[in-house]
């Protein structure tokens, strides 16, 4: 089995174990950071949300990048995900924009 793949990228159990350890530590850190941020005194809702989400994104980046191998994927997959992210952003962004751009005095 293993010899089939050694040509491309040799897989070593130990190195993966180490990688996993780092990932777990990263998850621990980001999670505690998020919780910490959420308990900080209230200095403005937007800043708080932005901070928590930023940390969550770091966490997601670690999981996607290292566990899902997204950091070393094929171009085909990047293209596909690029489209998805774009449409996701469109859905969210335009909907929120539409919600905020209401004629004065109207409610929804």
């Amino acid at each position: 089995m293993s010899q089939l793949h050694q040509v491309e990228h040799p897989v070593e159990f130990k190195s993966y174990l180490r990688r996993c350890l780092y990932v777990f530590i990263a998850v621990l850190c980001t999670t505690s950071l998020m919780i910490g941020a959420s308990f900080l005194p209230n200095y403005g809702w937007t800043a708080k949300v932005a901070m928590i989400l930023a940390v969550a994104c770091v966490n997601a980046f670690v999981v996607a990048g290292y566990l899902m191998h997204l950091l070393s994927e094929k171009k085909m997959i990047y293209t596909l995900l690029g489209f998805t992210i774009f449409f996701f952003a469109g859905l969210m962004g335009l909907t929120i924009w539409a919600m905020h751009d209401m004629p004065a005095g109207s409610s929804h």
Partner: peptide, 16 residues
């Protein structure tokens, strides 16, 4: 998170 890690290790185990 831990379970995500064990799935990855399960795959690596198959790989080797």
């Amino acid at each position: 998170a831990l379970s995500a890690i064990t799935t990855l290790l399960a795959w690596v185990a198959c790989k080797v």
